[in-house]
Nucleic acid binder design. Structure first.
Lengths: 202, 202, 202, 202
DNA sequence: AATGAATGAGTTTTCATTCAT
DNA sequence: AATGAATGAAAACTCATTCAT
């Protein structure tokens, strides 16, 4: 299900070119945001001409979608890779959360792009992207449920999953505030510390 | 300290016109964001001509600054109004946090503007605005320190203040996710519940 | 009833600028047709910048409409000016037709523009322009009816009016064929000669 | 005499491909005109790739020429097929004219293409195409001369032939005006009726 | 102080044409 | 012979900003 039109027939080439495009675009979006980046710059950063760029997309917004989608995809994949739903130990939970925080550190800039630019997508594509975010939160909820069975209400589980989720992102988009006082390790340790208490409250 | 140039002498008029401008601009930014709003639209929504608009600002970005500044100002003022640093009771703490969450609910859309558009400010003005955010977080830290003296380390205090701060904003900028499952009261109750446990952990 | 959007408020200025635009555009359309003419060229030929051009129209097609409308308007006005419906003499009829042919000679190039470009208008504006053509044919019918009362059936009147109408245009758009053999006077004389016979057939 | 360059050797293939191209292009030109049709669309409608298209032509204009030429060719052939220069009866004349009108009805859309797009050809090719039109008019003149010998002057013959010619086309390109009031039969009957009177005027 | 017409650099997008495979 | 990916010049259109009135 590929919603982005192209006149190119070679599917492998499409993927290759789009990968180039996404890479180029992310670099530029990090630097100046979506609106201040021109399609010509994206073409150049991608290593091909403006004409070629438009063989693989229809509008500039398509690029934003491609970028957002790719970022969410990557976050999701890397998060999923850490999760073992057959392992219900508290240690596993901690490991998952910890790696999620590391992941967010690794993808700081990408996360900022998402935060600031998703709103520029149009209704349908935005909905599609936000669904991915819902999925990730649901995943965290499932991990909570697996590792702390029975103790947390559905609603609280959702709340805590959301808290975890944005605390991860916060490390990136509030780094101007946090990263002067905290090392990454400190940040993670303390967040997990409080989280554990919230989860084991009687 | 007014960093925005103008050729108008009458200070009262300047303030009146800027209030009109900010009001008009916020309405438009809510709807379509800063980049998709034109200066002409802002002038129109403000009730005067494009020529007049440019008598009171120098560039479009000035308007964004004015808007962000006004929003932060308002949040800060309304938050400060709730705080009584001579009252060190836990009840007072809870009341402050609760009213902060209500405030964030009230100013949801404005908060979203800040979130998504502050990055478009240039270095100096951005720094000026972010300082206001630091001030607010510092205020929350002070309240924590006042109401839970001695129990929380400086770093943890900062972390929790940040958590509170963004959990308030989260209610607004993640409403598509949260506001289907939670009423405002539920949300506040549960966040405060977990927060209290974090603050009273031994 | 002005269907073309503009951001200019001064009505007189709008008319002045549009007159400039129409004049510039007609010159260019004569030379290279609508599609091969760029908006920049039109702006230049009109004596103002591309930005100014777009203050007075919304799309390139608006210019085409303005041009077609102006041409039809002019043809119609000049045709109407010749018609005296209180004069039912055959001489008057001949005079009207003759002056219509002269008019078509005078506006040859404009007529060619209409012929070739009206199809590029979109449904509504095309319909609006074609109505003017219907009106003109109807006018010719009325003159026939006035000067040859009772002798010609409604349908024949319509047919002959159409014939006259396109024979006038034909002089312009088939000049490559006709204007080598015929002088304008010859052409008119012979067409009127045959026409008179058609109208007085028993 | 083939003015259109190609790198293909197999003459039969050239003709086959061009037939495909003309068919595809006519369909598209009918719908959206020459300028709004892209070469890619023509290639697709012709059943081959854009690369192949350009093996058989050099520029987009070549396609227009091919199309115009094919249309004229067809009109001419079908007209010629009706003419028997050994038959000098008035009935034969009427039959020829009648079948010409039927032909124009049959090829309405093609005729509209010619009318509106021939001007986009460049000088030489346009001249070549218009010569075909001259030939056809000359053919009508010859039929007049054959069936009404001696009665009509050369100039009048040319005028009437032109009138017939464009009255046939008029049925197509003014259908929005005519085809509401007239059936094809009525139209033909009345035009021939007046024509006959013109031809038999003393 | 206020107005709004004028400007033109800059943006997205299209599409005829080429050429390596 | 056929393909279709690549190209980039050129097009329409926008909009922040200026400045004469």
């Amino acid at each position: 299900m590929d919603p982005i039109s192209t006149s190119i027939k070679d599917q492998q080439l499409i993927e290759k070119r789009r990968r180039q495009m996404i890479k180029g675009a992310i670099t530029l979006f990090k630097e100046k945001g979506f609106h201040r980046t021109t399609t010509r710059e994206i073409a150049k950063a991608s290593g091909f001409s403006i004409g070629t760029l438009y063989e693989y997309i229809r509008t500039k917004e398509d690029i934003l979608f491609l970028v957002c989608d790719a970022i969410y995809q990557q976050v999701q994949e890397r998060l999923v890779a850490q999760i073992d739903l057959t392992n219900s130990s508290v240690e596993h939970f901690e490991k998952v959360i910890r790696s999620y925080f590391y992941l967010m550190d690794d993808m700081q800039e990408e996360v900022v792009i998402m935060y600031q630019e998703v709103k520029s997508l149009k209704k349908e594509t935005k909905e599609y992207v936000l669904q991915k975010e819902r999925d990730m939160v649901a995943m965290l909820e499932r991990v909570i449920d697996t590792c702390f069975p029975g103790t947390i209400s559905l609603l609280d589980r959702e709340l805590l999953a959301n808290n975890i989720f944005i605390q991860g992102q916060m490390w990136g988009f509030r780094r101007w505030m946090l990263q002067k006082q905290f090392t990454l390790e400190d940040y993670i340790d303390r967040q997990i510390y409080f989280l554990m208490h919230s989860l084991t409250v009687k």
